[in-house]
């Protein structure tokens, strides 16, 4: 998608202590029980939804330096204020991902309840 992606090799791993979001959602990240592949898939789907929700709540949405994609040209509103700020773009990206995952979870996980702070986006966007 990002045309000129010639990113320098950068290790994508970070320490568990730096993973504030995982510590807050407090869901097991090592599945040692005997779950079926379907249960594992549902579990990971739910975990990712919780992870995104937590990121949005604590406003941990912008990746670290070196993990960001190139910024698009700025867009301004009528008052000359930039609208597509970095924070806005990454928040939107996470909200879009979460929306798709929640739609999937509602179809595939019995009794799935979306996070309390989730709002369905209005139609006719794009």
């Amino acid at each position: 998608a990002d045309g000129a992606r010639k990113r320098k090799r950068k290790n994508r791993w970070a320490a568990a202590e730096d993973n504030h979001v995982a510590n807050l959602i407090n869901l097991p990240t090592s599945i040692s029980g005997s779950m079926t592949p379907e249960q594992i898939e549902a579990y990971v789907l739910n975990l990712r939804i919780e992870e995104i929700s937590q990121k949005l709540r604590i406003n941990d949405v912008v990746p670290k330096d070196g993990e960001r994609s190139p910024s698009p040209p700025p867009q301004y509103d009528g008052n000359g204020k930039r609208v597509n700020t970095r924070e806005y773009r990454y928040r939107k990206k996470l909200e879009d991902e979460r929306h798709k995952l929640i739609e999937k979870a509602m179809k595939t996980i019995p009794d799935f309840k979306p996070p309390a702070d989730y709002r369905r986006p209005l139609k006719t966007q794009e």
């Binding site: 995982a22 090592s30 040692s32």
Partner: peptide, 19 residues
């Protein structure tokens, strides 16, 4: 590896491990 990598971050996502 299963124990050590669980809960780490990889490109801003939480790693989940299983056998």
């Amino acid at each position: 590896a299963l124990k050590a990598l669980a809960g780490r971050k990889f490109a801003d996502r939480t790693v989940v491990t299983t056998f």
